[in-house]
């Protein structure tokens, strides 16, 4: 579904991502872990085609993000770490805007918006301007917009930040359901307990380099993910 090969991205003299390769298969929830500034967001932004990279290749469903960005983006959705949405729109206008871009029919969007807005208890607030939303509400709206067009791949940067416990739980369920239906999820997180329980595979990045990758059992063995992570960080 998502193939990142030998990705390298440099900011000035600093290598943010250094020769990173990852394969995310259909049906997988893939967790991406690393300290602040390790290169997680840079990798995710490169994967969704909003950041130019210096070397390597990235393909989504077999198509190159560099050569055919529009086709790749049609297959995926992205939620950034800080959902800066269009403050001047209302929640419903934003969802309709995204639905228009993906050519979702009027009936289908109505059904999906109703379904997901009800799940996240956001229906009553859809008429409000986004500028009046809390961080968590914006995050919920970003999640709904991501699920709206049934993407094959969903890329999320710290998706649980700002969500209340109930919304976090619902999002985890939606992530699992999405992958059970053949989709894939690639997300970064600092919440290791969540990653440990939720992810099928995990990758740990340190100073731009991949230090460990595999299924959860392969990565953590008999230890907890937190212990493995801290051990790798100390090295």
């Amino acid at each position: 579904m998502l193939k990142i090969e030998h990705l390298t991205k440099t900011y000035g003299d600093k290598k943010a991502v250094d020769d990173l390769s990852l394969h995310i298969q259909a049906g997988e929830i893939f967790g991406f872990i690393g300290h602040n500034g390790a290169g997680k967001s840079t990798t995710l932004k490169s994967a969704v085609g909003i950041l130019k990279f210096d070397a390597g290749t990235i393909s989504v469903c077999g198509k190159s993000i560099v050569n055919d960005p529009v086709a790749c983006k049609r297959e995926m959705a992205y939620i950034p770490d800080n959902p800066d949405l269009y403050d001047f729109m209302s929640g419903i206008k934003y969802l309709n805007f995204v639905a228009d871009i993906f050519g979702i029919s009027a009936d289908e969007r109505k059904e999906k918006i109703q379904k997901y807005a009800d799940v996240f208890e956001l229906t009553d607030d859809l008429g409000q301007p986004i500028s009046a939303y809390s961080h968590g509400m914006k995050q919920k709206l970003a999640v709904i917009s991501a699920w709206l067009h049934s993407p094959k791949l969903i890329v999320m940067d710290e998706p649980f930040v700002g969500l209340d416990p109930k919304a976090s739980h619902l999002l985890k369920e939606m992530m699992r359901e999405h992958c059970d239906m053949g989709g894939a999820i690639f997300f970064s997180t600092h919440v290791l307990e969540v990653a440990e329980k939720l992810c099928d595979k995990v990758a740990i990045i340190k100073q731009g380099k991949l230090v460990k990758e595999g299924t959860m059992d392969e990565v953590k063995g008999d230890d907890s993910l937190e212990e493995v992570f801290l051990e790798l960080e100390a090295e």
């Binding site: 209302s90 639905a99 228009d100 050519g103 109505k110 008429g127 409000q128």
Partner: peptide, 17 residues
């Protein structure tokens, strides 16, 4: 608070959106 009234939105083109 603007009460949200559910209605079917007219589908627009990408440029229109």
């Amino acid at each position: 608070k603007v009460k949200y009234v559910e209605k079917t939105a007219r589908q627009k083109s990408v440029f229109g959106a």
